[in-house]
Design a binder for these strands. Structure first.
Length: 499
DNA sequence: ATGTTC
């Protein structure tokens, strides 16, 4: 069998694109889903140490997984998929990430690339003015505490009532844009205070708002079901729960330290801080996390509302409906969810595959930098897409294409119904700023690639330069080859508002 | 990711 040596670890290719981490006989398998090319830098940082640690956590259901875009994160790798038994496992803020329900949505239009050519500057300026971005709460109209409470509790449902969303929008979000388990009372005042001044803002870092054109369609029938055709303009919105989600994560990491010090000490790494599944704190964190998830959906919806109004204005349409700016889909890629999966009972735990008694178990599935990718026929796929599979949106860097996939037939059996979430970073933000200067990157994109970028900060452009990311084509190629998320269409950037 | 250093 093919092996790959990465730093202190040896990986063995047990099936094409499936690499198992070296381990003791009695430990839980950990797997990297990747091509050999994507493994090139995986030994340079702590990614594989982190993956091995996740596989040693209480109640983990085999295997612990790293997606093709995976890299080092806080405790867990970004690109980590880990499922823990909901009865005797645990739930971990580090397995969700600081930016709770960071995610992406794609909005369709009936415009084509020709409609925008020559007007890119006008469009990107108008979008930049309409959508607050960058660090902090600048430019956002402060919401009332009552609005925030409703957003935390009801997500996109609240947006429907307020006229910021249609009922159809809500149906085209993962979980229909609302986690009913949200508990606003479990969100601290400090987190809420940060949220009230940030509702409807893009944020910073890798967050962006990008107008794109569809360049390739790989699966005609599914593209048709998704409403995508070549040359069509679409809008991709990538943002999360801003300071509110960050504060929720910080709050609960601290409470785990205070309230479960013995459990914390038993974990392989303190950054994996987790609450035991049967504890009150686990329920509280889950309620707070679900509320932050709802907040992020509201955030993306309010940005969508601003984008729709801006397009109607720029393209002289009576309203956004005339431009048919329907939501294709909204996916979360930093979440944990209580889901029921069919697993195999092993000696003292459970495994996703393998021979033995098959049972249904409730699991806390953590997808940190990973996208749900449920296949055709799954009851949680919206009825409009149920015959083809859940739309999966995978953005590339701002100089590369993005992809629309559909949940693949193999995803439930291979990856707890999950696939990759993006290109994956190749280097730290600090190193990126040494290697690139924002203004140069911006000029290159405009002159060489006809991509118009407008950003709140030049440093952010440097941190997010196309060269700091892996090749998204390789990432989606692995997903497609494994049958966990199948290629449907590719887009290419037209103009980009960067946080 | 992040009022970019609890």
């Amino acid at each position: 069998m093919t092996t790959f040596d990465a730093g202190d670890h040896r990986l063995t290719e047990v099936e094409p694109n499936v690499w198992e981490l070296d381990r003791d006989d009695d430990s839980i398998p950990a797997r990297v889903l990747a091509s050999e090319a994507l493994l090139e830098h995986i030994g340079d940082d702590m990614t594989l140490d982190q993956l091995r640690n996740v596989a040693a956590m209480p109640g983990v259901v085999a295997p612990a997984l790293c997606t093709p875009d995976g890299h080092q994160g806080y405790g867990f790798p970004v690109g980590g998929v880990a499922a823990f038994d909901a009865e005797d496992g645990c739930i971990s803020p580090g397995g969700v990430g600081f930016d709770i329900n960071c995610g992406v949505r794609m909005v369709r239009t009936n415009l084509t690339y020709d409609d925008v050519r020559g007007r890119e500057d006008e469009l990107v300026d108008a979008l930049f003015d309409a959508v607050p971005c960058g660090l902090g709460g600048g430019g956002v109209h402060d919401r009332s505490h009552a609005d925030l409470e409703k957003a935390l509790e009801r997500g996109v449902d609240w947006c429907v009532e307020e006229g910021y969303a249609t009922r159809e929008d809500r149906l085209r979000c993962e979980d229909e844009g609302m986690r009913p388990d949200a508990d606003p009372d479990a969100v601290s005042k400090k987190a809420k205070d940060r949220g009230t001044s940030q509702m409807g803002s893009l944020g910073s870092g890798n967050h962006f708002l990008e107008v794109q054109r569809v360049t390739d369609v790989y699966d005609d029938d599914t593209a048709d079901a998704f409403g995508l055709v070549e040359d069509q303009l679409v809008v991709l919105i990538h943002c999360g729960s801003r300071g509110l989600g960050h504060q929720v994560c910080s709050d609960y990491l601290r409470r785990i330290e205070q309230e479960h010090p013995d459990f914390l000490a038993s974990l392989p790494d303190r950054d994996l801080a987790a609450a035991p599944a049967d504890s009150d704190l686990a329920d509280e964190y889950y309620g707070a996390m679900c509320a932050a998830i709802n907040f992020a959906w509201v955030n993306r919806q309010l940005v969508t509302h601003a984008v729709r109004e801006t397009f109607a204005d720029v393209f002289d349409a009576p309203d956004w409906e005339a431009l048919e700016m329907d939501l294709l889909y909204d996916v979360a890629h930093n979440i944990a969810k209580r889901e029921t999966h069919t697993v195999t009972r092993t000696g003292d735990g459970y495994s996703l595959g393998g021979d033995g008694e098959r049972v249904e178990r409730d699991l806390y599935v953590h997808r940190k930098g990973a996208t749900r990718a449920f296949p055709a026929g799954h009851p949680e796929v919206p009825s409009a897409y149920r015959d083809v599979g859940q739309p999966v949106i995978i953005p590339g860097s701002m100089g590369a294409g993005s992809y629309v996939l559909k949940g693949g037939e193999q995803s439930m059996g291979r990856s707890f119904g999950s696939t990759a979430h993006g290109a994956g970073r190749l280097m730290s933000r600090t190193r990126a700023k040494d290697e690139y200067w924002g203004g140069d990157v911006q000029d290159d994109l405009r002159e060489s690639d006809e991509i118009y970028v407008k950003a709140a900060s030049g440093a952010t452009i440097a941190e997010e330069a196309p060269g700091v990311y892996k090749d998204v084509d390789d990432v989606v190629g692995v997903s497609d080859a494994l049958g966990i998320g199948d290629l449907v269409a590719r887009t290419y950037p037209v103009c980009n508002v960067k946080g």
